[in-house]
Nucleic acid binder design. Sequence first.
DNA 1: GTCTATACCCCGATAGAC
DNA 2: GTCTATCGGGGTATAGAC
Lengths: 198, 198
Amino acid sequence: MARDASRGVRPPTELTLTERARRSQLIAATIDLVAERGYAGASLAGIAQNAGITKAAVLYHFPSKAHLVRAAYEHVIDALVQEVAGAVESVEVGDGPAAYIRSMISHLHEHPHHTRMIIEAMTHDEGDGDSAERWRPLADIIAAAHPVRAADEGNAKNTAIIIGGAINAIVAERLQDPDYDTAAAAEQLVRMVERSTR
Amino acid sequence: MARDASRGVRPPTELTLTERARRSQLIAATIDLVAERGYAGASLAGIAQNAGITKAAVLYHFPSKAHLVRAAYEHVIDALVQEVAGAVESVEVGDGPAAYIRSMISHLHEHPHHTRMIIEAMTHDEGDGDSAERWRPLADIIAAAHPVRAADEGNAKNTAIIIGGAINAIVAERLQDPDYDTAAAAEQLVRMVERSTR
DNA sequence: GTCTATACCCCGATAGAC
DNA sequence: GTCTATCGGGGTATAGAC
C-alpha cells in the first residue's frame, strides 16, 4: 500500500494501474530471487535490477524489504490455499485429509520456487504470528473426516502438525533431489494417516 | 581448524589450550545468539561482545561467520546424535524407530536453543551438502526393525523423511507454544508409525 | 600465537532533487 | 514516481602490536 485508502468512493483496491503492475512485477522478481538465493541473498538492488528500476524506487512501493517479502509470501500462499481448498471441497468429507495431502504436495511439486519462497519467509518472519494458522485448517478437515472420536481435540491438532511437517520434509527433499518421487511419498503418507485414524 | 594437522606425531587435536577454550566459548555464544535472534540477527560483533573480545579476534579463530555457525551446528548435532544413538542401541531392534522418535523429541524439548540453532543452520547452510545424511540413519533403523519387507528400499526412505519432518514440526511448534505437550505428540507419532509398519 | 586497528564493500533505509 | 546522495551497520581482508 504505497498509498493508503485515500478519498475515493471505491473501497476495493484503491491502486493505480501502474502501481498494481509494479507491485506484481516486484513480487515476481522477489519470488525468483528469494527462491534462488535465499532471503539474505536477495538484495533490494538485485530485485530492483530484475525489475528495471533502482533500489530506492522499490522502497517507494514497499516500505521495507520485510514488507516486500511478506507480500510475495502471501501471494504464493494464496495460490496454495486456493488450490488445496478447492481439492478438499470437491471430495467427500471422509477423503478430505487425503485430498489435502495430495493437492498440497502436488502443487508444491509443480512450483519449486514457491516452495523455497515459503520456507524462507516462514523462517525469517518473526515467529509467524500465530502458529495455529498453519495446522488449524487441517485439524478441522481431520475432525470432520472422523467425527466419532472428535472428543479429544488434541489428537486432531497433533495429527495436523505431524502431517504438516511430513509434507514440508517431502517437498524439501525434492528441492535437493529433483528425481525424488513426491507422488509416491504422498501416497505413503496418505496410507499412514488413513491406517492411524481407522 | 585454526591450524590444520601439521607435521606432528599426534593425530588427535593439535590445538592450544586457549584455542580450545576460545572455540568453546565462541560456540556457546553463537548458539545463544543464533537461537535468540536468528542467523542474520547474530552479528559477529554481538558474538564477540558476548565473549568479551573483538570482532576481528573471532575471525582469527574461525575464518568466517559461516564456519563459526557451522561449528556451532555440529556441536549441537553431536550431542543430539549421541543421545539418540544411545537410546536406539539400548533397545531391541524392533523398538528402534520408537526409541529414535522419543529420544530425539525429548532431547530437543529439553534444549530449545539447540532446536532453533539446528533450524537456522539448516536453512542457511547451502543445501546441507547431502540430504541423505538426515534420513539415512533412520531409514536403516526402520529397515532393521522390519526386515521382512526390506525389499522395497524406497519405503524406508520415505518413512524416514516423513518421520523426520514430523519431528521437526513437533519441536518447532513447541518453540512457539511453550505449553505444547511434545511427549504426547511423540507418542501419537510412534503409534502412527507402528500401525503403518505392521 | 593471540589479538587490535583499520579500511573496504555491500546492504537496507532515509532525505531531498528532478 | 523515480532518481542521486548519504548514513549506519554488517562481513571480510590485511597489517601489525604484543
